[in-house]
Write a protein that binds this DNA or RNA. Structure first.
Lengths: 142, 142
DNA sequence: CCAATGTTTAGAATGATTCTTATTACTAGT
DNA sequence: ACTAGTAATAAGAATCATTCTAAACATTGG
């Protein structure tokens, strides 16, 4: 189990490495993402952060989420043109978008799969990232 | 080579199969997509259709594109939250998004790859589609 | 021809996100 | 501690792609 202080320290570390400051807002946003990993939107995060920090603004939520993405602590996920969703899972994984419920599920990928997929690229294409999105019906409880 | 009339007939057929009408607007939009396969946005398509049909409206372009997507003649592609792009390539393929130029390249996939990727899903997930997006640097000329 | 239905048009409305500006909070150097 | 410089936040305005609305038009089957 990763303790709360561990993740706070990971955040502090990453921010420092990027020459950024560790603010209470960033800590709250990150902790909100870690607490409930259901791929919330910025509005969702805003709503969850407010009880802990009533004066926080939506603009700040967007700013902090963007910062966390820059620091590679969080992944931004998009389905079609729906609102961006945020995911603190750092393991290599794909996303499964349940078309019935709108829910998003992380699908952990076996080691080597992403490289294997990358190997279909012609030699002169240099992929920095690969994203895999499934769409369909997920089991009722997962 | 697929002739122009062939594709018009494919369109007419698909529309009929879906109980939809074959309109001049739909034909123009589809032909615009076939003529230059550079993953245009709705605005791009609008601009390209106008010379051929000056009275066409942007709303109609959106409507027609949506119709073509429903008929499985065209794929809608999204990168982050940028405008949706449209692609008449029906072969199984991934997309490579060149971060420097913004250009999109089709990457044809070897047969079986999509099934292989699907096989990483737990048994109770039923994927209707799989989408693969690469991001990085593409060769200067492709 | 007529009614029913599908399609197009133009413009208004929406929704997520970004931008702007002022204010506040740190940080380093003295 | 004091101060200049920089970073971050807050609040609201602005933006952009897209969708909606309502009216006009077109097509089909009876």
């Amino acid at each position: 189990m990763i303790s709360n202080t561990d993740s706070s320290e990971a955040l502090a570390q990453r921010l420092q490495d990027s020459g950024l400051r560790n603010t209470p807002q960033r800590e709250v946003i990150y902790s909100v993402l870690l607490k409930k990993r259901d791929h919330p939107t910025a509005e969702d995060v805003f709503a969850r952060a407010k009880p802990e920090m009533p004066m926080i603004s939506l603009a700040t939520v967007y700013n902090c989420l963007e910062t966390l993405v820059q620091c590679d602590l969080v992944r931004a996920v998009n389905f079609e043109r729906g609102p961006t969703r945020y995911c603190p899972n750092l393991r290599p994984h794909a996303h499964f978008h349940d078309e019935a419920t709108g829910a998003t599920h992380d699908i952990d990928l076996p080691p080597g799969l992403l490289d294997q997929v990358k190997s279909v690229l012609p030699a002169d294409f240099d992929a920095k990232s690969v994203e895999i999105i499934f769409r369909g019906k997920a089991p009722a409880k997962s």
